[in-house]
């Protein structure tokens, strides 16, 4: 390779993480999930497959669920990130968190942060989904414990709670 020998410059980025502004200097190759877990020390965002399949690393980027193992931290400059730590407000669980608790929408819990963040964005756009729509919405988030049945119940329960809250 005829690459120039110079080390790539660090890049200064600023993100709003769960409502709080954060600034850091990062290597361009730093993945967003590593930035969240290791630079910002929030380990609720999990690394599962590390190959863009499992969705354990799902976060909201400007409100849209994406796989943070397949985005560079520099790409998040100037944008809003929501992780599972940002869901509860004032010590009160977000309706989707309450629903996962009540419906036992998890066993080992590894996929749960990603499942819930996908759900938050999905239910915002589709407040009264069918089971088929829920199954399709979570098709990028793998759960190896539950068989999905209680996750779907949790989504349905969260949808009802959110509709009630909005009403």
């Amino acid at each position: 390779m005829t690459t120039e020998a110079s080390q790539p410059a660090m890049v200064s980025i600023r993100v709003t993480l769960n409502g709080t502004e954060q600034e850091a200097s990062v290597e361009p190759r730093l993945l967003l999930v590593h930035f969240i877990r290791e630079t910002l020390n929030l380990t609720g965002t999990h690394i599962g497959c590390d190959t863009t399949h499992c969705g354990a690393c799902t976060i909201l980027l400007d409100g849209t669920p994406v796989k943070s193992c397949t985005i560079f931290a520099v790409q998040a400059d100037g944008r809003e990130i929501t992780t599972v730590e940002g869901l509860a407000a004032g010590g009160v669980l977000h309706p989707i968190q309450a629903a996962f608790t009540e419906e036992h929408g998890l066993q080992c819990g590894f996929c749960t942060p990603g499942m819930m963040l996908t759900g938050v964005a999905f239910l915002e756009n589709n407040p009264d989904p069918s089971e088929a729509e829920i199954r399709r919405a979570i098709s990028g988030n793998l759960c190896r414990c539950t068989g999905y049945v209680n996750i779907i119940k949790a989504y349905q329960s969260a949808a009802a709670k959110l509709r009630e809250r909005g009403a």
Partner: peptide, 9 residues
């Protein structure tokens, strides 16, 4: 194409 999360990017 891929899955819904990948399609967002």
């Amino acid at each position: 194409i891929a899955d819904p999360l990948v399609r967002n990017m």
